[in-house]
Design a protein around this nucleic acid. Sequence first.
DNA 1: TTGAAAGCGCTAACAG
DNA 2: CTGTTAGCGCTTTCAA
Lengths: 343, 343
Amino acid sequence: MKVTISDIARQAGVSKATVSRVLNNRTEGVGPETRQRIQELLRETGFQPSGFARGLATGKSASVGVIIPDIANPYYSMLVRGAEDTLKKAGYSLFLCNSDLDIKKEKEYVSILIEKGVDGVILDSAESDCDCQLELLEEAEIPYILIDRIIDDPMKYAGVYVDNLDGGRQAAEFLLSRPGSSLIFINGPAELSQSRLRQEGVELAIKQMGLPADRVEILYGDYSIESGRKLMEDCLRRHVLPGGAVSFTGVFAANDLMAFGALRALREAHISVPDQVEVIGFDDIEMAEMVDPPLSTVSQPAIEMGSRSAAMLLQMITGKRPRPKTVTLATRLILRGTTRTPG
Amino acid sequence: MKVTISDIARQAGVSKATVSRVLNNRTEGVGPETRQRIQELLRETGFQPSGFARGLATGKSASVGVIIPDIANPYYSMLVRGAEDTLKKAGYSLFLCNSDLDIKKEKEYVSILIEKGVDGVILDSAESDCDCQLELLEEAEIPYILIDRIIDDPMKYAGVYVDNLDGGRQAAEFLLSRPGSSLIFINGPAELSQSRLRQEGVELAIKQMGLPADRVEILYGDYSIESGRKLMEDCLRRHVLPGGAVSFTGVFAANDLMAFGALRALREAHISVPDQVEVIGFDDIEMAEMVDPPLSTVSQPAIEMGSRSAAMLLQMITGKRPRPKTVTLATRLILRGTTRTPG
DNA sequence: TTGAAAGCGCTAACAG
DNA sequence: CTGTTAGCGCTTTCAA
């Protein structure tokens, strides 16, 4: 913040305009030796252009905002990592915002990001009646990508999605394929379209298999380890029969963290996994593979979601804003130690 | 980015200066009814001030940079979360930078952050011969906080530290207190002062207990789950005796992730934890408690480190830059299922 | 190939 | 209590 473009200009005996040209690598408009001289000066003086000034003049900031529920959740960490890597490659920086799934915080962050002059935002959004955050973005004409959150008209928004419905279906189908099986589904927050879709998947499996609807009990958690544990503890209170037997055979949790919590509760109740109860999570975070028994889960390509959304956003920022596009990535059931071998 | 302070001024029939005054909540210098009128206008028009313009005029950005090795590591996620929360409360935003412990990337990021005009940076730094990132920061006169990285003169830098030496000592002492015990220490990267200190702690324990130095074998990993696993697999190749017995009794890993990896290797080799081998990690990430058996570990208050460093940084930014201060937070050995009961 | 000059939107003296 | 006037550091026509 010390040496400015004017200093360089003066020392080089040229105008600011010329310095600006070499600063921005404009091929035309600067003689080779002039360029050389200026470049040396820039180097020697350790010149750092002011982002403020540049931003004010160009209206661009080379930065984007990423709003997620909570960076402490490994799934989002990976997503953010994916985004950051591809943004960095393109010369963009990343503002990190944790919304805690709170629409108010989210709106606040959008406001702040607009003030900061971000060129775009990636939004793994809370959902609610008001889409006021989006309105702010629209008004400011800032491109944004929605992650895995459907808001009415899917063609109107750009976004990257994961096939939640099919993920839910796969898990439920596996768990319910056992004779005499019944399922506890620990879903995420009921307001999320994500949750709705996974639930639809579960219901689809039931229908396809011709099973009665009461073969599955649905609970709603908040994606934290604690909530998975609590919910499962309650559940066990209701479902453990006098002889120590359990009246359900499978647990499907809407994320791995809640699955871990459920496993913990199961373990403490001395219920054997996968012999008495099979468990499937969702996300496939790194830890899923490391616990004992390793967690079977529906994998969701977090890093790729981050990098894809960043790439799409960059395209919207630099390109002519092609029509909003939507990408849906596949989910895949990964069988590990918390499920028995199929069949 | 549409309606500006001039628009407001014109519509309110006042000067930009006046609008600026109410914008910044200056108590003096604006009549109550003028203020009222302007505030309404601001509301109605949905006015968003330009951070660029403000930054250019004031030299402040209300944003700070946070450079960490990798947000995908839960320890850093928590640290960042702690920092973000306290920064947000103070009205600051956060640029997230992943260095991968690469000094070159780190320096690059520092440069970028300076261009962005950050008011300060929190640096969980790679270490190397060159402290060139710090020089850049000094030159730009941007306050910064070092996290758990000692660079020669501790009084010269502001930082928050964790008592690594004592953490290492506690873990080693526990593991070596068993009769006939010997220890594998999976340390972090050898270049980090963090690693050196933990190693010193281990060595201190040995000395204090009057044990021969060869009771501990030291390996160096990179903090990833994979490296913990690989290292332990190699180790087992060397240390599993013909009868299936193992020639070491304890494993101390410099972070929980590597401990998980080691546990995995141990499990696959059918070595019982904690009966044959006891394991202690470092960090106490949330997952430590959830695995089976729950991981004994040296806890390190990640969230608090983040919030403390943010708070200190804010003080340096707003205050008169009091003499650089150093805070060292305690580590604590938490005994869970991967160790046997003491004694 | 270069330079002059006007601005980007806001703040901050200094006057009135 | 309010307005005037300069900038902050850079980009960008438009001329030369």
